[in-house]
Simulated assay, not measured.
Amino acid sequence: MEQSALTQLKERGAPPGVPRAAPAPQARRRRHVWPRVWHFLSFGAPGVLVYVCFVLAPIGISFWYSLTNYNPFNPPISYVGFDNYVLLFQDNEFLTALKITSILTAIVVVVPNVLGLGVALLLDRPGWLYNALRSVFFTPVILSSVVVSIIWSRLLDNDGPLNAFLRVVGLDPPGWLSDPDVAIYSLASIVCWQMLGFCVVVYLAGLQGVPTELLEAAEIDGAGPVRRFRAVTWPLLAPALTINTVVLLISAFKTYDYVKVITNGGPGAGATATIAFNVLATGFDANHVGYASAMAIVMLLIVAVVTAVVLKLLQRREVDL
């Protein structure tokens, strides 16, 4: 009888004041770990392995070399600690290269962003003509930087077509690539010309993602074109601005091929020599691999810190729709 009464109480629920019997403990199901590990190894490991082999491992090897006086033609290797880094910031050649790289990066980040936004606003219209113009502006992006450098070095040559045209109209052409005060700006203009199409395409993608309802609502409220751009379009282009700025920043800071082909670091004493140019010249021409590795590590740290700060600041402006 007692057993049947307890069974009925369990089925109907115990009345208030009567404690219920504690449920029988159930054995925890063990999560099978090995299928998840195998899943990761099957899909993630190849990518991680490639990243480790071609990114992390070279960085680690370069850092080790930067702590030595490694010269492949003058063994043995000696550990020098951070002497290369101390010497680096006392080297006028490196400090000049840092200044040149900073000027080049500032120009390349600002000019294509501004011009790219203007061109994108002009091309943000339907029609075959505007589609063709988009292709024209994007064509320089797919060209090799070496090809672009050769073309522009011919155009800006002292006897090139640009100087010939300036002489015809009665102007005295400057030394685009031979004047130390002008060469860095000529070089930056070439990089801006090639990167302009990339910025145009990214801004066009952002413009086509702006909801027409917001623009129509702003127009109904009496906002003019400038006001609509400032209040609606520009805030929604923040992700496009972030992408363009970060890509231009990284690309400009590691500029090497333009300098090598067009000016070879000149004219004069390193008037256009960037940090990347000095790294390869020191490591492969002078064979001071340890010192060049220290330059590369410093450049990596500068790019990483500046990119992280810029990315953090620009992401604050992004608007979630």
Rank of each mutant, 00 (worst) to 15 (best):
L6N: 11
L6Q: 08
T7H: 08
T7L: 12
Q8N: 10
R12A: 13
P15Q: 03
A22Q: 12
P23H: 03
P25D: 04
R30T: 13
W34I: 12
W34G: 05
R36Y: 10
V37I: 15
G44N: 12
G47Q: 07
G47D: 08
V48R: 01
V48P: 00
L49E: 09
C53H: 02
V55R: 05
A57D: 02
P58K: 05
I61M: 03
Y65H: 09
L67Q: 11
P76D: 01
I77H: 00
S78I: 00
S78F: 01
Y79M: 11
D83G: 14
N92V: 09
L95T: 05
T96N: 15
T101L: 02
S102P: 01
A106K: 01
I107A: 13
V108I: 14
V111P: 03
V111M: 03
L115K: 06
L117I: 13
G118T: 13
G118Y: 11
A120G: 11
L121D: 00
L122M: 14
D124M: 06
P126V: 04
N131E: 14
L133Y: 10
V136G: 04
T139L: 15
V141Q: 12
I142L: 14
L143A: 13
S144V: 01
S149L: 05
I150Y: 13
P161K: 09
A164V: 05
P173K: 09
P173N: 04
P174I: 07
W176V: 05
D179F: 00
P180L: 07
P180C: 04
V182S: 05
V182M: 09
A183P: 07
I184C: 05
I190T: 13
V191M: 11
C192S: 14
F198R: 03
V200M: 09
V202I: 15
G206E: 06
V210C: 09
T212Q: 15
L215D: 12
P225E: 08
P225F: 07
R228S: 15
F229V: 08
R230W: 14
A240T: 04
T242C: 04
T242V: 10
N244E: 07
N244L: 11
V247K: 05
S251H: 06
Y256Q: 03
Y256N: 07
V261Y: 07
V261P: 06
I262P: 08
N264H: 06
N264Q: 15
P267F: 09
T274N: 11
I275T: 07
A276W: 08
F277A: 02
L280M: 09
A281C: 00
A281T: 12
A286I: 00
I297Y: 02
I297F: 02
V298I: 14
M299N: 14
L311Q: 13
R316T: 11
D320T: 15
L321I: 12
